[in-house]
Computed example of a mutant assay.
Amino acid sequence: MKKFILIAIAFAFVSAGCGTVQSIIKSSFPYTATLVIPASSATGTTLTAMSEGTSFDQNFAVKGNNGSRVSDVHIVSAKMTATIPSDFNIGNLVSAKIYMAKANGESEVLVASRTDIGPNSGPSIVLDIDNTHFLDELVREKNVRIRMVYQLRNKINIDASLRVVLGISADPAK
């Protein structure tokens, strides 16, 4: 039994470097970020919130980030959910645009947006994706930055934390 487990672990490490496996991993584990809207935010003006974007596979990559083994990376889904408070009405926002960039802010790309957020949207919304850009360069980075540009409809009484989940699709590198 121990030999079987050791063989399975060795196979997992060897295959983790394969482009096909990396494309499956990148496509299975989304990038997430928690963005905070301060209670002091003014209504009717364009505001910004930023956070580091993380993905499960970044933490377990063999020999660093294996992003070089994938290509044609693009956004396939985007969702925003209130986490603190969990019943925060995302309808307090008029609009939101989500950008992804290198940690230093370079190569920023619009990946999702919603310009028509209804006033009674509730604690979770699906964003409209912008998959016109390939994100190959960004997924090769150790760290990425997620930035939200938003406009607040209603004054809020406490800081609100919103979790953004960006699903991506990737092909094996050619």
Rank of each mutant, 00 (worst) to 15 (best):
P172M: 03
R153Q: 08
T32C: 13
A12L: 15
I156K: 02
I9H: 11
E108V: 03
Q58R: 12
V111L: 00
L110W: 00
N157K: 10
T115E: 07
V36I: 15
S86H: 13
V70G: 11
E52G: 12
K3F: 10
G105A: 06
D159V: 05
K102W: 01
K174T: 15
L6Q: 09
K97E: 07
I156L: 03
S121G: 01
N157Q: 12
S51R: 02
A33Q: 08
S161R: 05
E52I: 05
D72K: 15
R114I: 08
V164T: 13
P38L: 14
L162I: 12
I125G: 02
S77C: 02
S95P: 04
N104H: 11
E141W: 04
S113I: 04
S95E: 00
F4I: 12
D116L: 03
S161V: 04
G122V: 01
A103Q: 15
S161A: 14
G17K: 12
S27G: 14
N131D: 04
R140M: 11
A78P: 08
V36M: 14
F29W: 13
V62F: 11
K97P: 00
G122W: 01
T48K: 14
I168D: 10
P119T: 06
A33E: 04
E108F: 00
K3T: 06
A78Y: 02
T43M: 08
P123D: 02
I146E: 04
S28C: 10
K155H: 12
S113D: 08
V14E: 03
V109A: 00
T32W: 07
V36P: 03
I129C: 03
R69I: 07
K142E: 14
N154G: 05
M148G: 03
F29P: 09
A42C: 02
A8D: 09
S23M: 01
F56P: 08
L110M: 07
D57L: 04
S15P: 11
C18A: 15
I84D: 14
A8G: 15
